[in-house]
Computed example of a mutant assay.
Amino acid sequence: MNTLPSAASFGAAVLAARDAAGGQHYPQGTLYVVATPIGNLADLSLRALHVLQLVDAIACEDTRHTHQLLRACGIDRPGGQLLAVHQHNEAEAAQAVIARLGDGQRIAYVSDAGTPGVSDPGARLAAAVRAAGQRVLPIPGPSSVTTLLSAAGAHDDARGGAFVFAGFPPAKAGERDAAVQALAGETRAVVLLEAPHRIEALARALAVLGARPVTVGRELTKQFEEIATVPAQTLADWLGAGAQRTRGEFALLLHPQPAAAAGDGVGAEAERVLRLLLAELPLKSAARLAADITGAPRNALYAQALAWRSAEEE
């Protein structure tokens, strides 16, 4: 985390949080799902800061990480007030949280960065608490998803702000390629997340989308933040242009494409050529050559070929 402010500089923020949020109602027996910074500590909201001071205990994805966050904010929490709730124990740990809520305690939940329950743990905990008849109250804030969307300029007049959140693609190459192939027919904007050790493999897989614009956000909100929009087929080249470009956490946005590009209206001649090529070539090669021959979008032809294959298998 890029903790630009120091604990000392947060003294004024702590007082401001009490003034701004202290007069609001914070019911007991409630789970507070708190969004924390994705990189820049100054993005922590005043209400989040107040809740982290107020609650009886804090459930967290990584107690060590959360301890560092709290200390940077000038909040002193004994180790016994930090409860480990992560992807490997979330279902079991939820019962301990529910028991504390039943005793009237206020419990916050934070993931390592961003809004819990999106791609981080928290969703199972929230579901279990609700199923137990207890309240879940969100404390909104930073999210890499909305951060990238706000800067990408990917609005589509036909669909408004509609987008699909696909999260992290599969780690295995075959499954990742299949996931990307499925996205070829998605006309809405698509948000993906990726780790640094897999970003180059994802970039190579996305090349099949051709000229479709991709906005890549690297190290969002941090000191070395980069946001760039490039054609999907050149994303791997963009990453390779500097050693630092494969470092850090990544959010990617596939821009929306015209509905016709998803396979409805690639043109009768393009479809005819594609069918002829499919009889002799693998799907990917057939789509590429059909695009070269007819000028139709390659990703649209690829999506059309996938649709034909799916129909044949039914």
Score class of each variant (00 low, 15 high):
Glu312Cys: 11
Arg309Val: 15
Gly295Thr: 01
Glu194Cys: 08
Ser150Val: 11
Gly217His: 01
Ala211Met: 15
Pro27Trp: 05
Arg204Lys: 14
Ile75Gly: 03
Ala151Pro: 04
Thr246Gln: 10
Gly174Arg: 04
Ala203Ser: 05
Glu61Thr: 09
Asp112Lys: 07
Gln244His: 15
Ala195Leu: 10
Ala211Gly: 14
Glu219Gln: 08
Ala203Met: 01
Leu202Asp: 03
Ala182Cys: 13
Thr187Leu: 13
Asn2Ala: 13
Glu219Val: 07
Gln134Gly: 10
Asp43Trp: 04
Thr30Trp: 09
Gly141Gln: 11
Ile139Tyr: 08
Arg245Met: 07
Ala300Leu: 01
Gly117His: 02
Glu90Thr: 01
Tyr32Cys: 00
Phe163Val: 03
Ile75Met: 09
Pro138Val: 11
Gly22His: 00
Val180Tyr: 00
Leu277Ala: 01
Pro142Ile: 04
Ala184Arg: 00
Phe168His: 03
Gly114Lys: 02
Val55Trp: 07
Leu52Arg: 04
Ala8Ile: 01
Pro116Ile: 09
Cys73Phe: 11
Ile293Thr: 14
Pro116Arg: 09
Val180Ser: 01
Val208Gln: 09
Gly104Asp: 08
Trp308Asn: 04
Thr221Ile: 10
Arg47Lys: 12
Arg272Ser: 12
Gly248Leu: 06
Trp238Asn: 05
Ala72Asn: 12
Pro142Met: 10
Leu202Asn: 05
Thr294Val: 09
Gly80Arg: 09
Asp43Lys: 06
Gly153Cys: 08
